[in-house]
Simulated assay, not measured.
Amino acid sequence: MKFVICLLAVLLSSCASAPKDAATFDMVDIPESGAGESVFVFYRTYTPPAAYDMRISINDKQITALPNNTFSYARLTPGKFKLKISWHPLSGMFSNEQELEIKAGETFFLQLSSSVWMPIGIQLGSDEHAAQNQKSAIEMLRKCCKYVASIEL
C-alpha cells in the first residue's frame, strides 16, 4: 500500500514541460497577418493540472498539446472559430469551449488557463482565457514560453 501511495505522489507531482531545446519566442518566425489571413497566438503559463498537456482544438480539430510555459500559433481565415481546451482523462479535468472572433489582418494573442477545484473548495488557476494586447503578450512570451509546433489548418 505504501508503494502505491508513493507512486501516486510521484506521478501527480510530475510536470508537463517543453523540451529543453525548444525554441524561445524570439527564435520563432511568427508570420505576419494579411488581408485574407489572421494569426492566432496562444500560450499556457504554469497552470494546473501541471502533470498534463493542455490539448488545443480549433473547430473540432486538435492542432497541438501545450505543456506548461509554452506557446504556439495558427494561421486562420478571419471570422469566428471554436476554441476547445481538453485534457487527458486521468487529469480529472473537463473540456472547455469558447467561440472567438478574429479580424482580417489581426494577430490575436490569448493566454490559456485552467480551473482545478481542490477537495477543500479552493480554486487553483482560472477557467477564463484572457485576450492580451500585443505588447503585454510578447513581454510574457519572452519571459516564460518555449515553442511547440501546431499542425496547419
Rank of each mutant, 00 (worst) to 15 (best):
K61H: 14
C15P: 02
Q111A: 15
S115W: 08
Q62Y: 03
L7Y: 13
T107H: 04
Y52V: 00
S33C: 06
N69K: 07
V148N: 06
V4S: 05
Y52Q: 00
A65N: 02
V4C: 04
E37K: 12
L66C: 06
L141W: 09
K84R: 08
L76D: 15
L110T: 09
Y46H: 09
L100Y: 07
M1V: 12
T77Q: 15
V28A: 01
F40H: 08
F42Y: 15
F71P: 02
E32K: 12
G125S: 11
F81R: 13
E139M: 01
G125W: 04
S150H: 12
K20N: 02
E97D: 03
M118W: 01
C6S: 09
G92N: 04
A74R: 02
I58C: 01
F42H: 06
Y43W: 13
L8F: 04
E101T: 13
L110A: 10
E37M: 13
I63G: 01
Y46G: 11
S57A: 04
K61Q: 15
S114T: 12
F108M: 05
P119N: 01
F71M: 05
A23H: 01
M118H: 02
V39N: 12
K135L: 14
S150I: 11
E106K: 05
M27S: 11
L90C: 07
L11W: 07
F3N: 15
G105N: 00
G125F: 09
S38P: 09
T24C: 01
I56C: 07
C6K: 07
L83S: 11
L83P: 12
A22M: 04
R142C: 08
F94C: 06
Y46I: 13
L66M: 04
S72W: 04
V10K: 03
A104C: 11
I85K: 09
E139V: 00
A9S: 10
Q111V: 14
R44F: 01
D29N: 15
M54F: 10
A16Q: 02
A104Q: 10
K61I: 15
C15F: 07
C6Y: 10
L110S: 12
R55E: 13
I102W: 12
Y147R: 03
L8E: 03
E99F: 08
S17I: 09
S86Q: 04
L66S: 07
P89Q: 10
R75P: 03
V116K: 05
V116T: 11
F71I: 03
S13N: 04
G79E: 03
A16M: 04
L66Y: 00
A9E: 08
S13H: 00
R44L: 03
T77Y: 10
I5T: 09
L112I: 07
K80M: 15
G79W: 02
R44A: 01
L12V: 11
T47G: 06
P119D: 05
R75T: 14
H88K: 11
I138H: 00
K143Q: 14
K61T: 14
D60L: 04
D21T: 12
N96G: 13
A104K: 10
I5K: 08
E152D: 12
R44T: 01
A50Q: 00
I122V: 07
A149G: 05
A23G: 03
M140V: 04
I56Y: 06
I56S: 05
S17W: 08
S91D: 02
K143R: 13
K135N: 13
V39C: 13
P48D: 10
L8A: 10
A65F: 02
I63E: 05
C144G: 14
E101R: 08
D26F: 08
S114K: 02
I5P: 03
